[in-house]
Structure formats: C-alpha cells, structure tokens
Nucleic acid binder design. Structure first.
Lengths: 239, 239
DNA sequence: AAAAAAGTGTGTCTAATTGTGACAATCCAG
DNA sequence: CTGGATTGTCACAATTAGACACACTTTTTT
C-alpha cells in the first residue's frame, strides 16, 4: 500500500470538519468531508475511501445507524467520534462494527495515532476487500465479471485486461452516464490525485477503447467531454 | 472544474444583497441575486447556479419552505442564513436539506470559508444538476439522445456533435420557445459569464446551424432575436 | 536471483475543438 | 435611404485530446 490513504470525515459541524481535515492533510492524508449520512454515502460512491472518521451525533440518521449500514455492504475501517459523556456507547459502537473509538475533545496527536493504528491493523489483514455485492455487469456487447476480474464479449470469449485497464473500466461501469474528470478517475481507479501535467488517464482510456470499441476512432462506449473528462454512455445492468 | 462557481444570493434586504454580492465578486465568484422566492425560481430557471445563499426570513414563502422545494427537484448546495437568536432552527434547516448554516451578523471571511468548504465537498459529487429524468428529446426532424450525447436524424443516422455543440444544443432544447441572451447561453452551456467582446456563442450557433438547419442561411430551428440573443423555436417532446 | 515479459506513465507530435479578430452582410432608427 | 450597431462567417491562434514511442516499474518466468 504505497498510496496515501483517503480519509472521510463525517461530522455535522463544519468547523470541526475543517479543523480535522486541515491537520490530516498536513500529515499527508487525502481527505473528504461529509455533513450527514446522505453526503457520506455520496462520498463513498464517488471516491475510494480507506477510513471513515464518523461522529456519533448527526442530524438525520445517527452515527451508529450509519455505521451498521456501511458494515452491511463493506468493511471500510470506521473510527467513531463522540462527545464526552457519551462513553457509555463505546461497547455499543464497537459492537456495531466500528474499529476504534475516540472521545471529543481530542488532541490531533491522538487522532493521528489511532488512524495510523487502525490502518496498519487493517492493511495486515488479507483484506478480502469489500465483498462486491454484484458479481457481473453487462453493457453494450460486453460482460464484466467482477469476481474473476475478466471482460467477456457476449459470446463468452475473454478479452484480457491489465490491472489498470480493469480498475479504470470498473470506475466507469459503476458510474455510468456521468461526466467524470480525469482527477476523479485517477482517484477512483488508482487512488491518487492528479499531478500537474497528468495524461496517464488519457493513455489508459485510449488502450481501453482499442480493446472495447468497434471503431476506436469514433468511440461509442467511453466518450470524450472536451475540457471536462470522459463519460461512460451505455446502459449497465447487473446479473 | 475550472469554471468559476455561480452563487445565488437570496435575501429581501437590497443592502445586504449588494454587500454580499460585492465581496463575493471580489473573491472571484459570479453572483446573481433574488429578493424573494419568485425571483429565486426565475434565476434557477435562467442560470446555472452552483450554490444558493438563502436567508431564512423572506416575504412570502420562507427560506425553509424554499429549501425543501429546491431539494425536491435538485441537489444544488444551499447555505442557510439566519438572524441571530434563530439558532434553534439549525437542526431543522439541515434536516430540510441545507448543506450548511450561518448566523447573521457574519464576517465576510466566515461566509467565504463556508462557501469554499461546501463547494469543495460537493465538487466530488455528480456534476450538480444534470439528473435529467428523460433521456431523449425530439424536435423538428431530430432526436437528441441525452445518455449517449448524440444527435440523430429521424431515420436514426448519427450527426456528430462536438462537446461544445452538444452542450449548447442541450441548453436550447431544455428551454425552448424562450429568448436566451448570449450571456445566459454562455452560463448554461459553458458555465462562465461573457467577457467584453464575446462572440463565441455566435460562432457556435453558426456551427450548429450548419449541421442542423436545412438552409443555414434562413434558419428555422435556432432563430436570431436581433439585439436580444437566440430562440429555439421547435416544439420539443420527450420520450 | 537474474532475465524476460507485461504493464504503466511521460514526452512528443498530430489532430480536433474552441474562441478571437476581421470583415462582409444585415438590421433598424431616424 | 443612410449610418451606426449588430450579426454571420471565415481564417487563424490557442487550448485540449489522441496516438505512439520509449523509458521506467512491476510481475512472471527461468
């Protein structure tokens, strides 16, 4: 794991979000924030998150409930954050699937230490990675087998994909009909953010098109949005 | 996203609108204002708004109610503004779908910080307001396929459109039979406002006409409104 | 462990798209 | 009808994307 971990800070207080983001970034992490459950789910759908810092008290669905929801579909590590005096919930939080627990007010050193510890602990596990709920996607004349990481044409013939090509295609397939910037794609497929003159996504898109498009010169599946990025146009169905 | 965000300031007090607009513009944002719900809805229909600064107390329909109305059709980020002493409404505001909350009187730095924070948070999400429920529009002898970003003649033959041509046509198709100024079109299609001698829309309209009109010299679909802009005349139906 | 193969990203050149300036054509007020 | 303002369109410059070669990494094979 040489990629810098991407941490999602979920707290309804914007000042706390800002404060925490700032020192996490300073320590070299990539950070996204969310103010409630809805935003959290959006972030989880759009980005490859490595760890969630989840406040217990939230408007709408509360932290415990969110924690359980996340656990039902993935095993992203979660650190619960709670205001002092709510310590009773510690056991409950851990039972809900949180990986650690920290009480407000907290020092930056403490949070950093816990994050590091949890990440180290989790990376050691032969992370079977989140159990993908669906195992096959169909689109255009292709089938993407998530379990086998294989691309099949409709008649079942395998088209070999490299790791990077597969990851990029996966990012597209899971977010069809949406314009995705190069930066987003890089985050989703590679887990890193773009550097100044980064053209690697273009190259990889070009390679994918060569393998998948009937006529790579006028692509039907992955289209270019000039000045914006790329968009995966086909209807995707799961099976 | 390199386009400068467009912020809509909704407040019934003209002095506050002016004050806020001024420092937002100074900070590089594009700004529109509205004094009540009616004007707000007009602005939302006419321009591509990236964020709404919404005062809680308004004549007619109040801020909370407007907030809910907006949320029912879009997910444009909203920051609620409220006079001091109304802090009780904080949770209520967030539950109504606001993304953040700020109390009057506020410092400019505070407002700018919150706006920046909300925009950054949202920028990772689906490009703000292109959740078109319908995927195809028909007009004249053309069909515009929104998913595939393709223009088809009635017999199904594809007419290639560049990204900019597609975006402009989309702006027209979604607002047919209305005079649209160059400034509006630039905002809707490009997400930026016109500079002094901006003729790019004219050029792009010319290019669209060349591809779509039977006789580009006497256009039937996109007509010129002398001194006003352009108007998309055909009846548009969705399918 | 060394060698070979496959995969990935950067730099360069080419192609496509877009915006701007120029100038002709058109429109409208007086 | 005339003149200034506005619009249509062309050519060109600037920006962005595609393709390809090559260097650098990682993985696999020997």
């Amino acid at each position: 794991m040489n990629k810098t971990p991407h941490i999602l800070v979920v707290d309804d207080n914007p000042e706390i979000r800002d404060l925490v983001s700032r020192f996490l970034i300073k320590d070299g992490y990539r950070v996204s924030t969310a103010g409630d459950g809805r935003e959290m789910h959006k972030a989880l759908a759009d980005k490859r998150i490595d760890l969630i810092l989840l406040d217990l008290m939230l408007p709408g669905e509360d932290g415990l409930s969110l924690c359980r929801t996340i656990r039902s579909t993935s095993n992203i590590p979660i650190i619960m954050v709670t205001a002092k005096g709510e310590e009773i919930d510690r056991v409950l939080g851990l039972e809900m699937g949180a990986d650690d627990y920290i009480a407000k007010p907290f020092g930056t050193r403490e949070v950093l230490a816990r994050i590091k510890a949890v990440l180290r602990r989790v990376s050691g596990e032969t992370s079977t990675q989140e159990a993908s709920p669906r195992t096959k996607y169909s689109f255009a004349k292709w089938i993407l087998d998530v379990d086998k990481r294989e691309l099949l044409s409709a008649d079942g013939i395998v088209t070999p994909l490299s790791t990077g090509e597969y990851d990029l295609l996966m990012a597209f397939v899971e977010r069809p009909k949406r314009v995705l910037s190069r930066d987003q794609l890089l985050d989703l497929a590679r887990g890193r953010s773009a550097s100044v003159y980064d053209r690697s996504i273009d190259t990889q898109v070009s390679r994918l098109r060569r393998k998948m498009e009937l006529d790579p010169k006028s692509p039907e599946i992955i289209k270019t949005v000039w000045g914006g990025g790329y968009i995966f146009t086909p209807e995707v169905s799961q099976s």
